[in-house]
Design a protein around this nucleic acid. Structure first.
Length: 612
RNA sequence: CGGGGCGUGGCGCAGCCUGGCUAGCGCGUCUGCAUGGGGUGCAGAAGGUCGCAGGUUCAAAUCCUGUCGCCCCGACCA
């Protein structure tokens, strides 16, 4: 491809609205153009890279035995009503506007395709003999994101590979899950991403087992905890740490202290001369739920109190999980940090003076963080405005067992905590981009949508499902986040829009142009993706552009070298120029491309520590 | 949705506070000449409803009101 005949609108200046490195470079290198918030045009260079990612994903999915199909973006609202996800998705689910009674208000733009695939499955997958099967598509998704950000990292329209597997047993699901997990490792490895697979929360999609594939970068929106050895890696939403060692001090008598106007943990510490890790934070939550009494739904409201150490933060994802489990046979409608009025009503004290003593009778659940149960002589609120107590001891001054008490891990892991299964393996917390997510869904969708097959005994059973997603646009952004320098992008060979760029430095020199042109043609004949910078520009300008768009290999044809019968060959990543003859350069390029692709293809599931 | 910031030729910005001349500057674009190994120099030129609507005023990019859009932080998020 001749640059002069192509369309690569590069810019020298940094676009004002971009902050993330990948966003800046994608704009500057002419890969994308923003059309509106969260909506982007992929310009030719960007689209080439995106298609390469797509092709890698397709090859690996096919190799794993998954079968490609194509589902509609337009979906009937009724399918979403079947699974109750119209409410669960909220504003994320985009609905068409139109007069009442028209088809439009009953149509949505698909944010994901569990409902549509399950609808297909229930129509055709009627026998265990058809199972297992894994169906996938590469399809545009639409989501009403409240706040698109960081270029293509979070958009309202994006390209996703979504796969759905169907099984007649959990064992079979586990097997498929493992296959997809390994396939994802191959895909991200081939794309040149320094990724890490972490244990994940399954969120609104549902299900139990789940892993996310993360690429560590400051531009990411997720936080992950990774142990130094790489033996443990989890999304911060679900990460847990080794329990704190039990304290062994002799319990002292509980003592009330007047602490006028001192409510915050730090202030109390200063006032009492203690440290946050010797305090107990008492957090009050309002809960509203439905319970079935005499066959009728009865709505009730109450309180849940959660205790964590003063130096710890509550992890609301974990807490909510524990709460839902604790109220297993009820439907939790509302669960939120209590209002000041509600806290006062429960504790009889102003906010900031709550303590666990004597509360258990008045609340519906007392949830005690594991690390609180082993504290000795702690300080906490006295349930009396302007008073705290010290020498509070779990088990003595408030219960850590019983009907209403749940002891669980509900705190946020912090930098330096030890990994849950190791004594000497500190955790590091990093931000990351989620590029893929695999779930074991189970029967959530098949039950809701009555998607059943007949087993060997001729009995109808709900299909057991797994689902597996990859954000293709994010792969591009993550690759750039991971591979760039001050000058621009440094593409991994596998997803580079072109594998090699031939630069004619003196385009008005006939010999230069002929040589460069011949090398270009030969490289094209060798089946490589070649960009030929034949523009009538000065050398520096072309070098800067080449750096910016980040084509991995570079052949430089200039008057000076050519006078000695040589051209130059170098890699974008190190810029170490090698003088070779025009005759041998083609072979060198072909070899370098092959080696680099092979290297990426060998990229294995590496351990998490390698990305720290 | 809450908080903050910003809308001025294709891009990046100044001017606005304190209203007033022909709305400036850099990049890019076009023409010519020179230059030709790391975003080249000189000369000339084209290109702007100052986001939009209303108001105040003799006069609005500038002041006021409303509205739309974009970015950042937070909430939310398969």
């Amino acid at each position: 491809m001749r640059w002069s005949q192509y369309f690569i609108p590069t810019t020298k200046e940094t676009p004002k609205d971009a902050t993330a490195a990948s966003h800046v470079l994608m704009l500057r290198a002419g890969l994308i153009r923003q059309v509106a918030a969260g909506m982007y045009t992929y310009l030719p260079l960007g689209y080439r890279a995106l298609r390469k990612v797509e092709q890698i994903v397709r090859e690996e999915m096919d190799a794993a035995g998954a079968i490609e199909l194509h589902m509609p973006v337009l979906q009937p609202l009724s399918l979403w009503e079947e699974t109750g996800r119209v409410e669960a998705m909220g504003d994320v689910l985009l609905r068409l506007a139109g007069p009442e009674g028209d088809w439009r208000p009953n149509t949505v733009l698909g944010p994901t395709h569990e409902e549509v695939i399950t609808d297909t499955a229930r129509a055709y997958l009627k026998s265990y003999k058809q199972l297992p099967i894994n169906l996938y598509q590469i399809q545009t998704k639409f989501r009403g994101e409240a706040r698109p950000k960081s270029g293509v990292l979070r958009t309202r329209e994006f390209l996703m590979k979504d796969a759905y597997s169907f099984h007649d047993s959990l064992e079979c699901l586990h097997k498929a899950y493992k296959t997809m997990y390994d396939t994802y490792c191959r895909i991200f490895g081939r794309c040149g991403l320094p990724y890490v697979a972490v244990e994940a929360d399954s969120g609104a999609i549902g299900g139990d087992v789940s892993h996310e594939f993360m690429v560590l970068t400051p531009a990411g929106e997720d936080s992950v905890a990774i142990s130094e050895s790489g033996g443990y890696a989890a999304n911060l939403e679900r990460a847990s740490a080794h329990p704190a060692p039990p304290q062994t001090d002799e319990p002292l008598p509980m003592e009330e202290v007047h602490t006028p106007g001192v409510g915050r943990v730090e202030d109390v510490c200063e006032f009492l001369g203690t440290r946050p890790e010797q305090m107990i934070k008492t957090l009050v939550y309002d809960i509203k739920a439905l319970r079935v009494v005499d066959g009728k739904d009865v709505e009730w409201t109450g309180w849940v109190v959660a205790l964590v150490r003063g130096d710890h933060e509550i992890n609301e994802h974990k807490l909510e999980r524990v709460v839902r489990e604790a109220f297993d046979d009820e439907v939790v409608l509302h669960f939120e940090l209590a209002t000041p009025d509600s806290i006062e009503e429960l504790t009889g004290a102003a906010v900031g003076f709550a303590g666990p003593q004597g509360l258990v009778e008045r609340v519906d659940k007392l949830i005690v963080d594991r690390d609180v149960t082993t504290m000795r002589n702690a300080a906490t609120g006295a349930n009396k405005t302007d008073y705290h107590v010290r020498n509070v001891n779990p088990g003595r001054d408030f219960p850590i067992e019983g009907d209403k008490v749940v002891v669980a891990d509900i705190r946020m892991v912090v930098e330096g905590d030890l990994a849950p299964n190791a004594e000497h393996d500190p955790l590091h917390i990093r931000t990351a981009i989620e590029v893929g997510h695999v779930f074991e869904l189970g029967t959530k969708y098949s039950e809701a949508m009555h998607a059943t097959y007949l087993n060997r005994d001729g009995k109808p059973r709900p299909l057991i499902m797994g689902c597996y997603g990859i954000g293709l646009n994010r792969i591009l952004a993550a690759a750039i986040e991971s591979h760039h320098d001050d000058g621009g992008i440094i593409w991994p060979m596998s997803i580079a829009p072109f594998e090699v760029i031939v630069i004619a430095l003196d385009p008005r020199d006939e010999t230069v142009m002929q040589t460069a042109s011949r090398i270009h043609d030969e490289l094209v004949n060798a089946d490589l993706d070649v960009l030929f910078d034949d523009r009538d520009e000065r050398a520096g300008f072309k070098f800067k552009d080449a750096d910016l768009i980040g084509i991995p290999l570079r052949v430089i044809v200039g008057k000076k070298s050519l006078a000695g019968g040589m051209v130059e060959f170098c890699h974008r990543r190190d810029d170490e120029k090698q003088k070779v003859t025009p005759a041998e350069v083609v072979g060198l390029v072909v070899k370098a491309v092959g080696e680099e692709l092979a290297g990426l293809g060998r990229a294995q599931a590496h351990d998490a520590a390698s990305v720290l």
